[in-house]
């Protein structure tokens, strides 16, 4: 497997007590890797550590062999790792177009203009709703604009934290369809998702997390076919997987 992002022995905490307890995970270049697991498993925390929003207590994150853990969020962004957070992250009173421009803020003016035109052709919503206030869009539409904004810097890895959260089934399908299309176009995505089935269906590889560690990792299709995964996602104990494996 051609690994672009490698996580080894990652420990991290917020106030007291480790949330991550030795996470090991590989992200395949040009693929979608989906991390699933129950609430509190540490899925979102992994993304926060990778994107530099949270400093790890121990362990390494390497991008193409270069260690990036412990660096600032801005430095990691410069390395081409962008984070689409779980909560709504658009600037609500700014237009859709300006929100997308903000994604390429660090680019030169000419590069920014060129890039936003490319993004608008990939994401029709950006051009069609360009003048509308981002806050007036539906949740699903906002998520699409967030993804479009994240693509402005031609990222090497996109970290997506529960993009389907709070969306109705129709909007959820649109968002997952977009992620699949991004992946078809060559983007590498590390996806964290509560909606295990939808997430694994668009992923090449998957991982199951529980209590701060990866309990199971493999081809997404195999995980989908594993009855224990559904049980785990619905709140079953991961221990049964360990016992079997």
């Amino acid at each position: 497997m051609d690994v672009v992002l490698s996580i080894r022995g990652l420990f991290a905490r917020y106030d007291r007590g480790d949330v991550l307890r030795g996470v090991d995970l590989d992200v395949e270049r040009g693929g979608v890797t989906c991390v699933i697991g129950p609430n509190g498993a540490g899925k979102s925390t992994v993304l926060k550590v990778v994107s530099g929003l949270l400093r790890p207590r121990a362990g390494d994150v390497a991008l193409d062999g270069e260690r990036i853990s412990g660096r600032s969020a801005r430095q990691i962004l410069d390395h081409g790792v962008v984070h689409v957070p779980q909560e709504r992250s658009l600037f609500p009173s700014m237009s859709v177009w300006d929100n997308v421009l903000m994604g390429g803020y660090v680019l030169s003016r000419a590069a920014l203009r060129r890039r936003v035109d490319e993004i608008a052709s990939r994401f029709p919503i950006v051009r069609e709703r360009r003048r509308e206030r981002a806050g007036s869009l539906s949740g699903g539409e906002q998520k699409l604009v967030e993804i479009a904004r994240a693509m402005m810097l031609e990222p090497r890895v996109v970290l997506m934290d529960e993009p389907s959260m709070g969306l109705d089934p129709k909007a959820r399908r649109v968002v997952f369809g977009t992620i699949r299309q991004l992946n078809d176009a060559g983007a590498t995505v590390l996806l964290v998702e509560q909606n295990a089935r939808s997430g694994l269906e668009i992923a090449g590889r998957g991982a199951v997390m529980e209590t701060g560690a990866v309990r199971l990792e493999g081809v997404a299709r195999d995980l989908l076919d594993n009855p224990e995964v559904a049980r785990l996602y619905l709140g079953g104990a991961a221990r049964s997987l360990e016992d079997r494996g």
Binding site: L53, A73, F91, P92, S93, M94, D98, M102, G103, Y105
Partner: peptide, 21 residues
């Protein structure tokens, strides 16, 4: 770009900083 920056600050200054502003 200054205008983009100011409008972004108005909405969420910390988020703007997170985007490299």
């Amino acid at each position: 770009k200054l205008g983009l920056t100011l409008f972004a600050i108005r909405d969420d200054e910390d988020r703007a900083r997170g985007l490299g502003v």
